[in-house]
């Protein structure tokens, strides 16, 4: 597995935005250490204001990415832009979505340094620190998002190939029905096991269940192991044959269930961070507004 793609998201255009990140962060740290300020660092010094305004502008730019993403149909825009390039060079898109995303990641990361230096390491129970904390939550969730964006798609491909959770579920339903029919010719004990495996095996569900990716005492896994133990018990007439077929069906179901759960878990991980990242980003905009208004109101 390649943990790092040299010219992918992070290395876009020969690390253009990593260089921007390094420049911003270095300048901020140097300014903080070298430039004289009155009475220690905090948001109200001239350097504090510069860092604060710069951070706020970066936040707005990062939020604008959210808007751009929703406005830009990815494939179509690229094709259209290429077509336009061929036809006329008069109109060029500002940036590709990947470029936006690369800058989004690095500019977001630079905020950790810029906003911290803006605060001068003064924190308290107030709207100012609330903005800072919300910003850190947004950035941390963004880091997680970057990580899963780079790693999880490969895992999904490796786990389930082209099959979606729905495809897997339909296959599992088929196997359940076959197991049910095979079990009908077998004693109640076996039918109960198959019934439990059919009705109590969970895939997906709530947010937590999707993220967890496994079921404790999974009835299907339990059924497979129990059938193996009960095999020697049923040797009358067609029972051995039915037991073998039933075991085979449930074994396939077990594999599909595990794959489906893994698939659901990986897809949930791909998406869940956005349920924190996006709402917190909106909340951050509100807190940032309150922060600025508070400063100006009590000038």
């Amino acid at each position: 597995m390649k943990a790092f793609q040299p010219y992918g998201l992070l290395g876009y255009k020969q690390f253009r935005y990593l260089k921007l990140f390094a420049l911003l962060v270095s300048l901020a740290i140097m300014s903080y250490l070298v430039l004289p300020v009155e009475s220690g660092h905090y948001g109200g010094t001239w350097l504090g204001y510069v860092l604060g305004i710069l951070s706020a502008l970066i936040v707005l730019l990062l939020l604008w990415y959210g808007v751009t993403k929703r406005r830009t149909p990815r494939v179509r825009t690229r094709r259209m832009s290429r077509k336009k390039d061929r036809q006329s060079t008069s109109i060029k898109p500002i940036a590709t979505l990947q470029g936006w995303l690369s800058s989004h990641v690095y500019l977001g990361a630079s905020l950790i340094v810029l906003a911290t230096l803006h605060s001068g390491f003064h924190f308290g129970l107030n709207v100012h620190t609330l903005s800072y904390v919300l910003m850190l939550i947004v950035i941390a969730s963004g880091f997680y998002g970057t990580y899963v964006y780079l790693h999880v798609p490969q895992l999904i491909t490796r786990n389930a190939g082209e099959e979606s959770p729905d495809d897997l579920r339909l296959k599992i339903i088929e196997l359940d029905e076959r197991a049910r029919l095979h079990a009908l010719g077998l004693p109640d004990e076996i039918n109960e096991i198959v019934y439990q495996a059919r009705t109590s095996t969970h895939m997906g569900g709530s947010l937590w269940q999707q993220l967890r990716g496994y079921q404790r005492d999974c009835p299907t896994q339990s059924a497979v192991s129990r059938l193996l133990k009960l095999g020697p018990k049923y040797i009358m007439n067609e029972q051995p044959k039915l037991m073998r077929e039933l075991y085979s069906v449930l074994l396939r179901k077990e594999k599909l269930v595990l794959r489906a759960r893994q698939e659901i878990m990986l897809r949930a991980r791909m998406q869940v961070w956005l349920y924190l990242h996006a709402p917190m980003a909106v909340a951050l905009l509100a807190a940032l507004t309150a922060h600025v208004v508070a400063i100006l109101f009590f000038w």
Binding site: P165, G204, G205, L207, Q209, Q210, I264, R267, Y275
Partner: peptide, 13 residues
């Protein structure tokens, strides 16, 4: 049961 987060009908907005 829902198989994706989208099926949970949680609205980020």
């Amino acid at each position: 049961p829902p198989l994706t987060l989208a099926e949970l009908k949680l609205s980020k907005r």
